[in-house]
Nucleic acid binder design. Structure first.
Lengths: 205, 205
DNA sequence: ACTTGAACCGACTGGCCAGTCGGTTTTGTT
DNA sequence: AACAAAACCGACTGGCCAGTCGGTTCAAGT
């Protein structure tokens, strides 16, 4: 582990730069050489550390994407406060990074899913796993909210989770397209609107 | 116009097949030869009718995508009935085609936007125009609903339109990934839930 | 100083693909 | 039939790119 320090450092550098470029230009539009040029490294170094471009990407998912999605979209909603508030704040923060054009891992996830959907089963499996974790955590957070009387007990937790994930992924696509700031603001307003429908009264189905 | 009949027919065939393959495999992952093979046509035929792959795709957008999005997502919400009902039915139908794995033009739009975002300004312009038309029509439908007392007059029409577009694009991504039928059902339930919050009371902002 | 293996270099291969171009066939016109 | 234009053919070019491989450099141990 100590001897592997240099190895780890190089691999890490490659992965970070790789994710950046894959995020910006897409997987298929980013050549291994593009990444290597950025780092002043050579093909030899790359294939010394990774088996293939696909293997490289898989490791990026496991080492970077999973963790970041976790820390940005999952951890912030764990807690005993009102889940609707937690989720609101979480989305607010996540979308704020989007406004500043920073690397948004939720969006990266969305892009990669779109890019690999129906084209690369192996990679899709990894991406789906992340979605699954997100979904499961949303559902359990909402269930908890029902127990604690923050959320009406008739609401369908799975449905809400799906709706939240959908609208988040969708708005990120639209924010990338134009007026991110205004759209973030409008989106958050509507989210609050939607949450009101989940709060107290009897309804759902 | 009469003399051009064969020309038109061939171009049409190419475009229809092109859209299918671009939809299935993505633009960059579909070679011109792939499309030609499908049609038993040659490179010569292709470049006789189109200037470039990009020109070809642009014409597909203008001739097929625009019209289909219009007929599937815009026309159905024009009318004097309750806009919330119109939109509900429209989404219901649109998502139903998705369940059957048919070519869904709303989804195609979503995929192409993701694929070209930040990578091809020229094509993005065309795609954005479609989104804009969709948005404008949603907004005016909602405004009309406010006038006709179907929708609370405090609601932010632009916000609702954005939220609807977002959630639609997002759920399509998630439906493609797994359990489309169940997700469609859940999504529609939540959409109705959200619409309830827009119906009568004072709120918004 | 010498050895050894990890880390890295970069020229090269083979395949794919957008676009070209000289040629052939098909179609319509006279 | 004769001709011209439209439609189509397919071999070829040049560039890109994933992956290979024989070689060099560097660092640690002895």
């Amino acid at each position: 582990m100590d001897k592997n320090l240099k190895r780890m450092a190089t691999m890490q550098r490659m992965q970070v730069t790789g994710l950046e470029l894959f995020y910006k230009n897409g997987y298929y539009n980013t050549s291994v050489d593009d990444i290597l040029k950025e780092l002043s490294l050579s093909k030899g170094a790359f294939y010394y550390h990774f088996d293939s471009k696909e293997d490289f990407f898989t490791q990026i998912i496991e080492n970077l994407l999973v963790r970041k999605v976790y820390s940005m979209l999952i951890e912030p909603i764990e807690g005993h406060d009102n889940p609707l508030e937690l989720i609101t704040n979480c989305f607010e923060n996540a979308l704020e990074t989007a406004v500043h054009n920073e690397l948004d891992f939720g969006f990266a996830l969305n892009n990669f899913i779109t890019e690999f959907n129906g084209r690369n089963e192996k990679i899709m499996k990894h991406l789906n796993d992340i979605l699954k974790v997100w979904e499961v955590n949303l559902v359990s957070t909402i269930q908890k909210g029902k127990f604690n009387n923050h959320i009406d007990r008739h609401v369908d937790a799975e449905g809400v989770a799906l709706f939240l994930m959908s609208s988040y992924l969708g708005v990120r696509t639209l924010m990338a397209e134009s007026c991110p700031s205004a759209r973030k603001y409008r989106f958050m307003s509507q989210l609050r609107q939607y949450f009101k429908a989940l709060e107290i009264k009897q309804s759902t189905f």
